[in-house]
Design a protein around this nucleic acid. Structure first.
Lengths: 399, 399
DNA sequence: ATGATTTAATCCGCATAAGGGAAAAAATTG
DNA sequence: CAATTTTTTCCCTTATGCGGATTAAATCAT
């Protein structure tokens, strides 16, 4: 356990204040004091230090609180966007998406590379990622030296703490030390995180879970991922492992173990389509879901059935997750949502059927079809989160 | 978030030292200093305060460290057993088990009441529990005034934070505020906890997970429960809810949803036996598993098949839990272990089959057939854990 | 036996933190 | 200019932890 000393104390309160400023936009000192329960004296001291470090900025204009504006107007404080720059990336089998954000998480530039990197050698993937990061940084009018941290979000089982990729559908090898590889290539601290964790933090910071301290995100992409927010923190398994929902076993069929991924994985849903023709080509190019959408609108019965089966499987899996974590909200994201009503309806029905009676009504299902940029922004948020904590170390004695 | 002030700092370090003393038996101040990374000065100050509060005791005898005994001998410190008394209880459908322990968690007296309380009105159950607590306390040569806290461990979905029982197989009603009820009856602070959480803490403190900070306990009794230790802490779902493993869905059979409880619940395994005769009577009296053991030894094919099916279902469920939490050790406890090799073998096989390849070897399965007393001791440990934290408030300025 | 050596525990002073209270400074309205 | 409200600034108290010096308690060597 880490030992508690005055420095830790200060770090905690500092983080607390900084996070309050991040969450509640431009905010005055008095209000910070109310929200954090810290005395105005302390808040004043901490904010002075944050201002001094250039992490926040004062804003004299925005003092328009309820007309009754007597007395000295409050000085609003907000994050200094220029305090840091980070790069967030979503690495998927058939596309690379990058964003550069400022300290607030606002996107400065973004770049999407619709290329299939799936099954390429590691060196090639690393090349492409490196290139994408560099391009996106230039697009933002910056140089790599201006970037503090890079965070790569990708599917699979990721060991965040060590930066190792235990297994991922986009790598042939297992246990790749991708964080070190990219850190040395970019000459910038680079961390690796599960894409599901990235989108989870994205929803906590910018999306549909800003008001919650507990929730769950189910990501339905090529890989089926899970992110759990517990007490405002990402819950990482023992050893910092990310979860892989697709590995969950749904039952023992006549042909042995049936895993969720075999019922609801993107390729499994699409793979049931007759081979050949434009559809196979589309799948190969990673446009499968777009075409699937069209086919479903055209009432293609084969695909609709596959979507219904997948929805059922996912619905049951979500019920199991809710049984274990009892979150007030479950946010479902990912490309498979494009399958539309047949999929969503069967998911909802299966969930309603599978949720234990005693937990009925505990969790609310929310569907979210955010863009790839949002995922990348989540990865950027992961990077920012680490930066937020780093002042813990650098904080010297107050001047 | 709670605000960090010197008091919190002290509380953290105090708890840290106290916990170190609890875990590492009689221990000297220097060693505490090494283990906690606190300076010897600080350790000295904190231990002085703990001694002053009577929570720990010095032991001058036990200074026999490696022969090379030069210099001033170390004074060993240990928990003061008399610092507190707690009662822990395991409440099951067909038996009530109580223990009284001292501050160290050592059992002073225990009492088992083999009575069926299942489906009795709440008032009757409360009566019986109250009676058991009082008896056990008297057996320990104490009076209820000497008892600091009572902790009741029972199956079902328990909301530890509020003391409500959301649902339990031993209550007809749902959402019972049992903690308040018993607190006013006993006139002693009483808390309620899932029995699975109790046995989890028991293993962490006294049992087969003393060396781990992450692990999982699967409890197979009438109800199938789960306890997760994460970072040395009990992981409670959002809102402090306990998990109910039996509600997990294993698949969608032809007859609808198939839950784990319907495959591996105690009554479901035994229930497949032909009705009538001595066996039914045994089940009614809660001796089902004992008889089942005999039948299995006699190679009763019906029961063996039921055991195998149950083992498979549990094995798959455990694999799913490991997929989510990636614990280094899974401890499996509960009366169903009495089913013996047919059950255990099929469990192990199903687990091996269902565990995803990337997690193979991550988790070790350990079977533990500890007595009911151990469960009750775990409940006592839950009570003690709360006491450990309470000095946070009562701790005044160091004198 | 007696002093030297070694290790443990404590004491003292210093650094930091937070908090409260009060007063001063700042900015705005009436 | 007076009134009002926010923010900063002192000053003082309480609390922690740490480092270095000091005391304490035992063994070893002569």
């Amino acid at each position: 356990m880490k030992t508690a000393d005055p420095e830790l104390m200060r770090a905690i309160n500092r983080l607390n204040v900084l996070d309050t400023i991040r969450r509640h936009g431009p905010i005055s000192r008095v209000e910070i004091s109310e929200r954090t329960q810290l005395s105005t004296t302390t808040v004043s001291a901490i904010t002075a230090s944050l201002l001094d470090d250039g992490l926040i900025l004062p804003r004299h204009e925005g003092d328009i609180r309820n007309e009754a504006a007597r007395g000295r107007p409050r000085v609003m404080l907000e994050l200094n966007p220029d305090a840091a720059r980070v790069v967030g990336a979503k690495i998927a089998a058939n596309r690379l998406v990058f964003v550069v954000t400022d300290f607030r998480g606002d996107v400065l530039s973004n770049l999407t590379l619709p290329i299939r990197i799936d099954r390429q050698p590691i060196g090639v993937i690393a090349d492409l990622v490196e290139d994408g990061v560099r391009r996106c940084v230039v697009d933002a009018g910056l140089s790599l030296e201006d970037v503090d941290t890079v965070c790569l979000g990708l599917p699979g089982v990721i060991e965040h703490r060590t930066g190792h990729i235990r297994s991922s559908p986009i790598f042939r090898d297992t246990n790749v030390d991708f964080a070190s590889e990219m850190t040395s290539r970019l000459n910038t601290p680079t961390i690796v995180e599960s894409d599901a964790h990235a989108i989870t933090l994205a929803h906590h910071w910018f999306g549909k879970a800003r008001d919650l301290e507990d929730m769950v995100v189910i990501s339905l992409e090529q890989t089926l991922g899970l992110g759990v927010l517990h007490d405002n923190q990402l819950f990482r398994g023992a050893g910092g492992l990310s979860h892989n929902l697709g590995d969950l076993v749904l039952g023992m069929g006549p042909r042995g173990i049936v895993r969720l991924s075999s019922q609801a994985g993107e390729s499994e849903i699409l793979g049931e389509q007759p081979v050949g023709g434009r559809f196979a080509e589309a799948i190969r190019l990673g446009r499968g879901m777009t075409h699937a959408q069209a086919l479903i609108r055209a009432e293609d019965s084969g695909l609709i059935n596959a979507a219904i089966r997948a929805g059922e499987a996912v619905g049951v899996a979500i019920a199991n997750i809710v049984t274990l974590f009892a979150p007030p909200r479950v946010i479902i994201v990912g490309s498979s949502l494009a399958l539309g009503e047949p999929f969503l309806d069967s998911l909802r029905n299966a969930f309603a059927l599978a949720i234990p009676p005693s937990l009925k009504g505990v969790a609310e299902l929310v569907f979210d079809d955010s863009t790839d940029n949002f995922w990348a922004q989540g990865a950027a948020a992961v990077a920012l989160y680490e930066l937020y904590e780093s002042p813990w170390n650098t904080t010297g004695p107050a001047l």
